[in-house]
Design a protein around this nucleic acid. Structure first.
Lengths: 178, 178
DNA sequence: CCATACTTTCAAAACATTTTGAATGTAGGG
DNA sequence: CCCTACATTCAAAATGTTTTGAAAGTATGG
């Protein structure tokens, strides 16, 4: 195959591996996703192990993770026992999957912990010495800041998740460029 | 000190440690930041090592990282040789520092790599066999999708970075709650 | 309903990151 | 301009993560 196709494939796979790390996934997940994204046909676990030069076990585990995150889809090939996969090509869908499954959980957890803390501090107030009470006031101020921060984060998240951007944005961007 | 103050401190420090991990920093950085955020007075490296039960070496390294990210500020105490630190209390400022120093770089890098790839594929076109040309076309489509995605990400980032939210949002949020 | 071609699992090994603390460097008070 | 109390560095050790491949499990074509 021509050099340029190899080079582009390599740098894209590497770039998506990097991006995966950045998002807290394993690099292999990103590279598998990239390999599938640049394949016009679905690939088997063996194909993937061969192309990325990693063990079958690793491919199996990482592909199941990709499946769970809705980044890869299983494809049934008739007359074949093998499992074939293709990449979910809608990057916005992938983004939404990740935001819903992780970021949202994280923000909610943080807000719950903060609520708890405020609750504790307020109900303990009458048992505190004057000095302790002063510190409790200070803590309450910080909890307020943190709550404000996470509330905005939550709002931003829910806004993104409620937006159906996938195709629209591609259209818009093409208009801008063309 | 009263139980409730301890509990709140512990869970906040733990929560910020968790958040730090989530954002790709070390957990210790988050815990140091949390400890400073919940201290009404600046703390020395020894104070921090003592409170978190970690070595001075670790505190030193992680505090310098926090400083580089604009998450902690050095405070000069007169008549003292020790370095004292306090947390940058404006969480939006912290967020902007991180986005500017990391996310922005990452997006720009990705867009450069993609530009390169498109360039390569287009200029190689005349050297390709018909099959290769078909694959090159397919690749170009994927590059387009990726570019669209990163362009939107870039737009979103620059919008956030251009917005001066810090105090305003606290105000807004208080209005909503109260 | 086999036989077998595949996938999954999981414990051990390889690898990577983080932590430690003793050695080294540095700066501020006297 | 020392002396010393502090901060920093860095190599070794501890800890955590990922990868591997052989063994176990599963399902499908015949």
């Amino acid at each position: 195959m021509h050099q340029s196709l190899h080079t582009v494939n390599d740098s894209t796979v590497a770039g998506l591996g990097r991006l995966a790390r950045f998002f807290g996934f394993s690099e292999v997940m990103g590279r598998l996703y990239g390999t599938l994204l640049l394949s016009p046909v679905p690939l088997s676990l063996d194909d993937l192990a061969e192309r990325l030069q990693i063990s079958k076990g690793s491919v199996s585990m990482n592909m199941r993770a990709l499946e769970r995150w809705g980044m890869a889809l299983e494809v049934w090939m008739r007359g074949e026992r093998k499992k074939y996969y293709e990449a979910e090509p809608d990057l916005w869908q992938v983004m939404r999957n990740v935001l819903t499954g992780r970021e949202r959980r994280e923000v909610q957890l943080a807000l719950e912990v903060l609520d708890d803390s405020v609750e504790k501090l307020k109900s303990a107030e009458r048992d505190l010495t004057p000095q302790e009470r002063e510190l409790a006031e200070f803590y309450l101020g910080r909890m307020d800041d943190l709550q404000a921060f996470f509330h905005v984060a939550q709002l931003a998240l829910e806004t993104v998740l409620a937006t159906e951007v996938s195709l629209d944005f591609e259209e818009i961007t093409k208009f801008d460029i063309g």
